[in-house]
Write a protein that binds this DNA or RNA. Structure first.
Length: 917
RNA sequence: GCUCGGAUGGUGGAAUGGUAGACACGCAAGACUUAAAAUCUUGUGACCAUCGCGGUUGUGCGGGUUCAAGUCCCGCUCCGAGUACCA
């Protein structure tokens, strides 16, 4: 019987589905294990061969854990809201829901062919009302919460209102947008509307006028992680800064907890590092500066308080509120002109073109340490969004200030003994202070501490920790997203009643903004709640993906996001697999969202993902043919240098082992119908290059094609065999035959001349050794996510057993259990062929036995001063004394030792490894 | 600029400080075949060799630690990823 993978795989996929083999239920008698993949956005292009890489790895791990006796939760779903479906809808009028469902069906079809062990009964789709009801619910909870810095947790907003009623803002230590100050009497005297406006300053989900990344091409605002280098990540459209009233989430309140939490989870150092940088904690001081001839005071943030005696000018961000307060009459027109220029420059220009620009305000600040007058300037190298939007410039010890000072000819004062600032500033925080009054003679670190102390004692400011992490902009002016559970009364936002959730996405006639420039929801009919207008914005993409892992635990629950008991069983994700591209987006929002739900007591774990692995990207491997210029003749790769050629992308699906299928090529395009070829050894060899996998490069490989040709088990093994999971690598089909050959060899261990042929005989020591070597290696490898070396171990084992002509049932049956996580279909088929009636998924993963692994011959490496190595074989039970005797008497030893006694004999783990002379 | 990775045969890649190159691809030779494909066997880092003995050399470069370094330490070069006027 041939190894008919197509038939086998179809049969078992059907069987698994019908018998609900992968359905899991809470089972308190067994330990749980939660394995999660980052759920995909179902794009119109379908899956390519790179997408399943992580899913295969997580599937192997899930199946392994199940065989090890764990109750494994391994769900899958879809991140169904997204820009592409909406862009497509704008162009074609096709409702995004229709496109999305079509794409989901296509994804599902492709996923099913690979034989994953997902529990599909738990599937979630972020665009389904049953699902986004809980996204809206969480938003309502955030709206009704504030963050208490003392308790370090979210608290109900009602508590805060009670505080306001009694003591106003006195002794308040809570996260807020702006520092407000009022008494209880003032609060109680305010109108409902005024009170609501104030509360927005404290809510975790709040509405505020903020500078946002506005993307005109997409017609919406974007969060910081959706923008890179001044352009949108999706589509690469330019982004500009704009002041808009938008929904925001007070993620910044959680900055310290997000940072601290990193120490409790098992993520790669590089990913933790990326998050640390994104959160960007910096310790420093806020210092107040008075302005000469004015009562205006302004505050700067600095991490280098020690350099206060080197401040020679101050700089305000162009957008800073202080600007209009400090500009003098005579400078007004010049400043105005400068602000106009800055405003016109896009973020992108500002970044690429680092020209020094700026303008003097006419005002002077007073240095609180020595009373000196310092000119105040405006420049766009100071950002409004960080710190206070104002800095004290120390050109001697900050490279940006240095460039500015040089350009505008401002004084530069060196503050550190022996530093050379003639060419550039001295930025390092080291050396001994000078020109600094009471700080002179201190080393920089001491000086920073002493200055901070001084600032606090003299009331010049305060010690402050700043974070780079900004609050997340949560509004999108788009159609295809979750509607907000918010309505407006008297211009103020109110949440809809929880019992009225979900607020379903309404139908609209077009997916474009209204004539008035409102978001597409402005087109919806009767878009009201109890007669009040509903919010027209929708939520961003990360809203639905922030808590989906919790919903899988209890995806059909209509009364709660997750049942408390059920969450108490599944807890958080033990293993999360996905790409690095979510390091500063999804993985920050998810952690924030989960911490918020933790504060509410909805979930029992503070961190959502205990262990996280980033699978590498699969790049494309493009193939080229070489056309001789101005002809229709193509020359093979190794001969191309003899001609003047143009490389042309050719569809990789017409190329096998870099050899072109000439007939297929001729039929590919009418232009090539009459093409001629210059061959080498009768073949046309293509060139290749690693590029992004994309249609335009003709290098997209569809997993369906591989499954059709080699089977899902081969695809699974091959994707793992390609290299380490976390490494990016090009897809290259050149080695797939080797993996496929391995499966056929395995098959042939069972079947001789078309008949099942297994023996009940007792295995030999050699056979047992081969098997247990494999079990040991694979156990170790799976636990360390080193799947490529496991595949190699299988190949070795099967080669050994083939050489031993082993067809013993005892050996083969354990072998296929060990293989089952990797190649479930063939394992299931052989498992049943051996007479088992239950699924191989419920077998017990065999333990290895060291006793079988003992070598009967021990090899000793003997070398002299590490040189002239040679090997000696001894029976395993030879004593070390005996070995040493033989080693020293060996002719090579005699030669090297020249009759002298060795100085030292190095023994490692009971083995002589070196003789030192 | 900063941070984090990485550099090993023709290729993808293996190697708890202890026989570098597992396993696979490719290539070569052979077996089977009218032939091809498939399959199987053998060989395969480079250099030297009285090519079935045996030797030299070899993990990006330069140093160091060690009896012993692909692996640890210091200094470079190159490549990749992330991030950036963050005061």
């Amino acid at each position: 019987m041939e190894y008919n993978f197509n038939e086998i795989e179809k049969k078992w996929q059907k069987n698994w589905k019908e018998n609900k083999i992968y359905q899991v239920k809470e089972d308190k008698s067994r330990p749980k294990y939660y394995v999660l993949d980052m759920f995909p956005y179902p794009s119109g292009a379908g899956l390519h061969v790179g997408h399943p890489l992580g899913y295969i790895a997580s599937d192997i791990y899930s199946r392994y854990k199940r065989l090890k006796g764990f109750n494994v939760l391994h769900p899958m779903g879809y991140d169904a809201y997204g820009l592409p479906a909406e862009q497509y809808a704008i162009q074609t009028g096709q409702h995004p829901a229709i496109t999305t469902i079509k794409n989901i069906e296509r994804y599902r079809e492709q996923l099913d062919k690979i034989g994953f062990s997902f529990d599909w009964d738990r599937e979630v789709r972020t665009c389904e009302p049953d699902y986004y009801k809980w996204t809206q619910w969480a938003f309502i909870k955030m709206f009704h919460s504030y963050y208490c810095n003392d308790a370090q947790q979210a608290r109900p907003i009602e508590e805060l209102i009670d505080v306001f009623k009694i003591q106003g803002t006195k002794d308040l230590n809570i996260a807020r947008s702006e520092e407000l100050s009022f008494t209880a009497e003032e609060w109680n005297a305010k109108s409902e509307k005024e009170q609501q406006e104030i509360l927005l300053n404290y809510r975790i989900a709040y509405l505020a006028d903020t500078m946002v990344n506005w993307c005109p091409a997409l017609g919406t605002v974007l969060a910081n992680d959706e923008v890179s280098e001044g352009v949108s990540i999706r589509g690469g459209h330019t982004v500009e800064q704009r002041l808009m009233r938008q929904w925001c989430l007070r993620v910044s309140a959680y900055a310290q907890r997000l940072l601290d939490g990193l120490d409790t989870i098992d993520w790669t150092e590089s990913l933790k590092e990326t998050q640390k940088n994104w959160i960007g904690r910096s310790e420093g001081a806020e210092m107040n500066f008075k302005i000469k001839n004015s009562d205006v005071e302004f505050t700067v943030f600095t991490t280098r308080a020690d350099t206060i005696f080197g401040v020679t000018f101050m700089v305000l961000a162009p957008e800073s509120d202080y600007v209009c307060q400090v500009v003098t009459e005579e400078q007004k027109s010049e400043v105005k002109a400068y602000l106009e220029v800055v405003k016109r420059r896009t973020e992108r220009e500002r970044m690429s073109d680092r020209k020094v620009t700026g303008v003097f305000t006419g005002s002077y600040a007073i240095n609180p340490f020595n009373g000196k007058e310092i000119p105040i300037w405006i420049s766009d190298y100071v950002l409004a969004g960080y710190g206070t939007g104002a800095i004290m410039a120390v050109p001697g010890h900050d490279s940006r200030d240095y460039a500015f000072a040089k350009y505008f000819n401002l004084p530069i004062i060196p503050l550190i003994q022996g530093c050379d600032i003639s060419e550039e500033s001295f930025d390092a925080k080291e050396g001994i202070m000078m020109n600094s009054d009471f700080l002179n003679g201190l080393i920089v670190k001491e000086a920073i501490e002493k200055t901070k102390q001084y600032i606090v004692e003299k009331g010049l400011g305060k010690v402050k920790v700043n974070y780079r992490l900004r609050d997340a902009i949560f509004s999108r002016q788009r159609y295809w997203g979750e509607p907000f559970p918010i309505y407006y009364k008297d211009g103020m936002p109110y949440t809809v009643d929880e019992k009225d959730l979900p607020i379903e996405l309404p139908e609209v006639d077009k997916f474009l903004p209204t004539e008035k420039g409102e978001p597409p929801l402005g087109r919806a009919k009767n878009w009201t709640y109890n007669g009040y207008p509903l919010e027209l914005n929708t939520m961003p993409g990360f809203a639905g993906s922030s808590a989906y892992y919790i919903r899988y635990e209890d995806s059909h629950d209509n009364d709660a996001l997750v049942d408390k008991d059920i969450n108490g069983y599944w807890r958080n994700v033990d293993l999360y697999i996905g790409g690095t591209e979510h390091a500063t987006g999804h993985l920050v929002y998810s952690r924030f969202w989960n911490k918020f739900l933790f504060d509410l007591g909805v979930v029992c774990e503070e961190e959502p993902f205990k262990k996280l692995i980033n699978q590498g990207m699969i790049q494309g491997r493009s193939n080229f043919v070489y056309r001789i210029k101005n002809t229709n003749t193509f020359v093979s790769y190794h001969l191309k240098d003899q001609y003047d050629v143009t490389p042309i992308h050719v569809d990789v699906n017409m190329v096998s082992n870099d050899m072109l299928d000439i007939e297929a090529f001729k039929n590919w395009n009418p232009e090539y119908k009459t093409a001629e070829f210059v061959l080498e050894d009768g073949k046309y060899i293509c060139g290749w290059a690693v590029e992004k996998m994309s249609k335009s490069m003709f290098n997209v490989v569809n997993p369906d094609v591989i499954v059709e040709k080699y089977g899902a088990d081969t695809l699974r093994l091959y994707e793992m065999f390609l290299g380490p999971l976390e490494q990016s690598k090009p897809w290259d089909t050149n080695g797939i035959d080797g993996v496929h050959r391995f499966l056929r060899k395995l098959w042939n261990l069972f079947y001789k001349e078309d008949k099942l042929s297994v023996s009940e005989e007792q295995p030999t020591a050699e056979e047992l050794k081969s098997l247990h070597k494999l079990i040991k290696k694979v156990t170790y490898d799976i636990e360390n996510f080193s799947f490529n070396t496991s595949v190699a171990a299988f190949m070795i084992c099967v080669n050994e057993l083939t050489a031993l002509k082993c067809n013993k049932k005892a050996i083969l049956s354990d072998l296929i259990i060990v293989l089952a996580p990797f190649a479930p279909h063939i394992a299931e088929e052989l498992w049943h062929a051996l007479g088992n009636t239950t699924t191989v998924c419920d077998a017990k993963f065999p333990e290895y036995n060291e006793a079988y692994l003992v070598e009967d011959i021990v090899k000793y490496t003997v070398s002299f001063n590490g040189k002239a190595r040679y090997l000696l074989d001894f029976p395993a039970d030879t004593s070390l004394d005996e070995v040493e005797k033989v080693v020293l008497a060996h002719e090579n030893s005699v030669k090297w030792l020249e009759g002298k006694a060795p100085k030292k004999v190095i023994v490692v783990k009971g083995k002589i490894v070196n003789v030192v002379i």
